[in-house]
């Protein structure tokens, strides 16, 4: 199944910049980006290899398609690509409710949800959230998020940032909030597909406030119990992915995106080990190892 990440957030929160950043740092991961519309500046020009009506080919085997008002059809086309993309990224419209996009993946057996990443403008989000018309749309987007990218932190006034973070956790208690400037974040935060590759030696941007650790279970575990524990806010994880041996001897794949976790059967030959991406100072090896 192809993982799908939904990038949400109100107009001007920096979704397009983030998408370009990810494409620029795709590093061999073949991304398919679905955008609601091709704006004038949807994709940085130097990334574009060729452009047909509603498909842009991008250096490194990535593509970008506009889906207009028919996301289902666009995803159907993605599934038929040969070879299929490694990861699909949906840049939702500024007024879209991200969970409704994720819900609709149920009908697309070729895909599975890899979480909702919502961008918010650190400087303006609280004002947008009290806007007469758009306020509830903005708070619904925030409530849907597994991960919030608190963007444009360079523009926020001193002290305001902490207040905004506190406010975000009131809107969505368990959400993981990652700060960024111009949407520059390690790709593995947004996309699980990067997580494992980053560990395999591919270069990636090392963020100052994030850390990556790999934990090795010492024996069989209850995968669901472990996954649930990893998704707890106090553990400090943004994402985790890896394989474990279950109590009955079978292999399981654990995927955690913020508060969301998923456990599926895996092939027997997979080696145990879970890659964890979390906040420096909050995620500790001792805590993680105590869980396994």
């Amino acid at each position: 199944m192809i993982p799908v990440t939904v990038i949400g957030g109100y107009l001007g929160s920096g979704k397009t910049t983030l998408v370009n950043h990810l494409l620029r740092n795709a590093n061999g991961v073949r991304l398919a980006v679905l955008v609601n519309e091709f704006g004038e500046l949807a994709i940085d020009e130097d990334l574009i290899e060729a452009q047909a009506d509603d498909v842009i080919s991008i250096a490194g085997g990535c593509v970008c398609c506009s889906f207009g008002n028919d996301l289902t059809a666009a995803l159907g086309n993605m599934a038929m690509m040969d070879p299929p993309p490694d990861h699909v990224l949906i840049e939702s419209s500024g007024v879209a409710i991200p969970s409704s996009i994720v819900n609709s993946l149920v009908f697309m057996p070729a895909f599975r949800a890899d979480g909702i990443v919502v961008l918010v403008d650190a400087e303006t989000v609280q004002r947008s959230a009290s806007d007469k018309y758009m306020g509830d749309t903005v708070t619904r987007q925030i409530a849907d998020a597994d991960i919030i990218l608190l963007n444009k932190v360079d523009l926020a006034k001193a002290g305001a940032l902490e207040a905004t973070r506190a406010w975000l956790h009131i809107q969505n208690y368990a959400v993981r909030v990652v700060e960024s400037i111009h949407g520059v974040v390690p790709p593995e935060i947004v996309l699980e597909s990067f997580l494992v590759r980053a560990r395999a030696g591919g270069k990636h941007i090392e963020p100052s406030h994030l850390d990556v650790m790999t934990i090795m279970p010492t024996g069989p575990v209850d995968a669901r119990v472990l996954a649930r524990a990893l998704s707890d806010l106090s553990v400090g994880l943004v994402r985790a992915k890896g394989f474990v041996t279950q109590l009955d001897g079978t292999k399981a794949l654990i995927q955690v995106v913020g508060r969301r976790f998923d456990v599926t059967d895996a092939k027997a030959e997979k080696a145990d080990g879970i890659v964890c991406l979390g906040f420096k100072g909050l995620m500790s090896r001792e805590t993680l190892e105590a869980l396994v």
Binding site: N69, D70, L71, T72, A73, S100, I101, N103, S104, V106, F107, M108
Partner: peptide
């Protein structure tokens, strides 16, 4: 199947009522 636009019958199978374009289009 877990989707607000696709109610399930007592047998756990969709009732065949599809609400909204995201459920209507694929069927």
């Amino acid at each position: 199947i877990n989707h607000p636009g696709m109610p399930l019958g007592d047998d756990g199978i969709p009732t065949g009522e599809l609400y909204g374009p995201e459920t209507m289009t694929p069927v």
